[in-house]
Amino acid sequence: MLSSIIDDKPASSTWLNRLRLNRGLTTDDDDASGNPLTLDDFLRRNHHTEIAATSSASDSPPSAPIPSDPELAESPSEEPVPGEWYGVMSDVLFELFNFSGSSKSSTIPGKKKLPRKQSNPRHCSLETPEDVVVPLVNQKSDDANCLPSVREFATSSSRSSYNKKPPAPEIRERRRSVVEGDGVDEEEEKGEKDLVGFSRSEVTVIDTSFKIWKSEKLVFRRRNVWKVREKKGKSRVVSKLKKLMKKKKKKKRKCDDVDDDDGGIARKKSKKMKISTSVSDNNPRYNVEEIHDEPESSNVSRRLLSKPRKEGSFGIHTSKKNSEAAAQGYRSLA
């Protein structure tokens, strides 16, 4: 290939000559120093007309060679002549390499370029430039709409925006204490669908309220927001695969024997019933749950009637997805 490119060089120059002649341009090939003009030199000099010329050039395979590309990339710094061609090229380059001074025509959203980070970082260095974080927050100044990971990131660097109240000093008195809201906004969580920024724990829960006492669950937590999901074990995947296999087999059977159709449907139904009951045993209506505390503005000191008590600020909201009981929900009075 290399040799072919070298061999093609004279061919490309003759092609260029022919093109120039066709377009009625001067055939003066040499620059001031007497060197023959390359295609790139030509492009630089006549960038207005050359766009058409290069597009037609791409039709001819031998001249397609790309060696001119690096030169084009460097050219803006060498010759800072503003023009459409450079504008287009610089935009492409900005998008390709995500240069710091992003072009106005850039279409890649900044949030896709988020640095990989721990899901639940404990510390965040103060050197973290805020100006990097802010534009990534989906172009919204409101914390509520930013990505969870970014919010976590921003929170640790500027706590005042997140924790409006300072953490309550823990009261050491026996059996009496106060719950302090940590400033998590409710709406902030409602719009959130993914679990980025949540810590994840596998738990084995034993609950005598259900027919099957023991169940495996996944607990996701970010601050005071807890989400619970049923852990889907391998057995489920296997059973799904088996179902698929069986369906395929049944389809084959249907082709072979049409009389078996009703029986097949009946069997399918009974199996579906079995699967649904086995799932509902442990979690009848609540596949996903999420609970979080809501901050309380009042910080009034309180007293239990029989014993001295401290101030309290605590409220709870639940939102139960896929649940019939969602309407009955948890009625907050806060």
Partner: peptide, 26 residues
């Protein structure tokens, strides 16, 4: 009884995640 939930929760959250809560609410 219900057990297995992490101690990092509050008691009210534990209650809400428990089957007892669901049975009573329903």
């Amino acid at each position: 009884m219900v057990t297995g939930w992490p101690g990092g929760m509050t008691v009210s959250k534990l209650l809400k995640f428990s089957g007892f809560f669901k049975l009573c609410e329903n």
